[in-house]
């Protein structure tokens, strides 16, 4: 249990970082970032086999992570900084001029941890497949993870990628879907319903797992199952239920917080939800 406590301390600080970054820039996407803070914490602090102090673009001999829904940049940057990929104080430059922390992830300024630009949706799973194929050619047994948004599944390219991965046994790949059922214009059900996600991915030939992305117990139970399911001729996807804006009562489950910065009053209220566990940047 102390492990979960430790993870929680980290994700609490990451949520503080997200709020401070988005508030500081007066722009960004707090909702999905807050929702995925627990997943990022667990992935980077428990599961991902990678060396933060020696980032290599080719990723040979390491697990790789791709963020397809690049607008979740705040949670990724905070996680990377807290894990030691770059100095924590750099988080204060988020979305500002001369920053390596671009609004959406970019390789242009050599930010350690980022291997491809993302933001325009639907591309990350294909890139992750390419990286997985490269690992197979290199006889590199490490895994490739790719997080996608649920609204992002409305992009056709995701299904091109899904079809390809299953047809070609890309089984060193774990996809994760941030299923908060919210997107910019409203709930996914109102915009274009995703229907039965499990059935869709199963029909495309993937092994489907489900996980509560805001419950560390469930996360550290399901991710190992996903890892055990790799190298069995099938790609693996985790449908990860989260709450948009998780941890901030007035943001939770509200699509309005997809891509909006809080004002001063909202910020004060939101930041008070999270204890400063590891020291602010």
């Amino acid at each position: 249990m102390s492990e979960i406590k430790e993870l929680k301390r980290t994700s609490t600080q990451i949520r503080r970082d997200i709020l401070r970054m988005v508030y500081g820039a007066q722009s960004g996407h707090p909702g999905g970032a807050l929702g995925c803070a627990d997943f990022f914490t667990a992935l980077y602090f428990k599961f991902l086999r990678a060396n933060p102090s020696k980032f290599k673009m080719d990723g040979i001999g390491e697990d790789l992570f791709f963020l397809s829904n690049g607008h979740l940049s705040a949670v990724w940057y905070s996680t990377l900084a807290r894990k030691g990929y770059f100095p924590v104080k750099e988080l204060s430059t988020f979305r500002k001029i001369e920053s390596r922390l671009q609004g959406h992830p970019s390789t242009e300024y050599n930010l350690p941890g980022v291997r491809v630009a993302s933001g325009s949706l639907g591309q990350g799973l294909s890139v992750a497949i390419g990286a997985s194929l490269s690992k197979k050619l290199n006889n590199d047994p490490h895994l490739v993870y790719c997080l996608m948004g649920d609204g992002e599944l409305q992009e056709g390219q995701i299904w091109e990628a899904a079809m390809y991965a299953a047809a070609n046994n890309v089984d060193n790949l774990i996809g994760i879907i941030d299923y908060n059922n919210q997107q910019i214009d409203g709930s996914c059900d109102d915009v274009v319903s995703l229907g039965d996600l499990r059935a869709k991915w199963e029909a495309f030939g993937w092994l489907v797992l489900e996980m509560d992305g805001n419950d560390f117990e469930d996360i550290i139970n399901v991710i190992p199952k996903a890892i055990e399911s790799t190298n069995k001729k099938k790609p693996v996807v985790i449908v990860m239920k989260t709450d948009m804006g998780y941890g901030v009562d007035f943001m939770m489950g509200k699509h309005e917080w997809h891509g909006k910065a809080p004002n001063e009053e909202q910020f004060e209220k939101a930041i008070s939800c999270f204890e400063e566990t590891l020291g602010d940047y």
């Binding site: 491809v116 992750a128 390419g130 990628a161």
Partner: peptide, 23 residues
Amino acid sequence: FFQVGIAEANMMCISAGLTIGGK
């Protein structure tokens, strides 16, 4: 050799991914 099928968007991004790993 990778036959991607009639899915050019997927092919371009798989290509980008393949460079990661030195291809």
